[in-house]
Amino acid sequence: MTRILQSDKLDNCVARWREAGLTVIGPVKNESSSSYAAVEKAAEFDFSLIMPDRSIKELFFPQTEPMLHYTIKKQRIDTSDFTPPPEKRIIFGARPCDASGLAIDDPLFGWDYKDNFWFQRRDTTVIVTIACTKADDFCMCTSLKLAPDSTKGSDVLLRPLQNNKGWQVEELTDRGRDAFNEIADLLQDGSGPAAPTAVVAEKFNLDACVAWLQNPENFESTFWREISMRCIGCASCTFLCPTCHCFDFQDEGDTYSGIRRKNWDSCSFALFTMHTSGHNPRATQSARWRQRIMHKFNYFPGKFNVNSCSGCGRCSRQCPVDMGITETLQAISTLPS
């Protein structure tokens, strides 16, 4: 039996979840930029955004995170660990591409070593996704074999009603069911007609691209230089990406004490691969852009059997020089493999 959550009940839900000790997070826009942020009232949400400028990743993998505190004395080194906050959270109104992004990164963070900073947050967060009824020129989930109503990575999927007054509730996991049992009396039985999901045209043939990337001869192709000539080497694509996950350790402090932090890093930076000797194996920007594409569509799937891209389009949407995954893969699909 499908149930319905009406928009005018959402404020009560938020209050109820907050009473139950959950931090309620959702898409929020202030004058200049948007992100997933904590709210106190449902009115703070902005569901009209195609998606927030900043991806959901930062809620699980913050841009800077203290890991341990160290002190160095004459004959000994003491350390004490930071642990991720234990607070429980519900993210209401995630986009399917953002939720999928988290699921894509799970195997990475749990592969040879279980990254507690990631998983503790994953385990204590309920993700309520809203299917998209709108998309823009940059959305490309369908090209990645996902969809505007993908359930991947979500605990609950909501489908907006045609009358725009609420959502059909589709519970997908126990965690999602628990969160919605909390507000069961605020839901209604029945299923009003859902609004049609957004139409997202397929932009490239993924299989053809992957085949081209897997051909070792193409590693040194002149294509890479041509396509990335205008790349300026900033990290906005990687930092806004819900699936890019590279990080760097930094010790902040001095010889005697300090904090070791885990900071976002990016394959776009020349410094990313710079050796102490000054030699840089990825000496040019085209080699760095190639790495980003290869990693997402060749190496990552080779290891984890899933592409490291959910098609949110942020990398193209926010690129200062109008590059991005879409353009590159579109170009690759037209090349002979």
């Binding site: 930029s33 900043r54 841009q63 300026i232 080497g233 900033c234 990290a235 906005s236 990687t238 930092f239 806004l240 900071n263 976002w264 990016s266 930076f269 410094l271 200062p320």
Partner: peptide, 24 residues
């Protein structure tokens, strides 16, 4: 507080040409 240190401001600026920026 919103800055994510993507250094897009630096990379986009024609005047920011240092091979090694002071922050690096």
């Amino acid at each position: 507080s919103r800055c994510i240190k993507c250094y897009a401001c630096r990379q986009a600026c024609p005047m920011c040409y240092c091979r090694r920026c002071i922050v690096d």
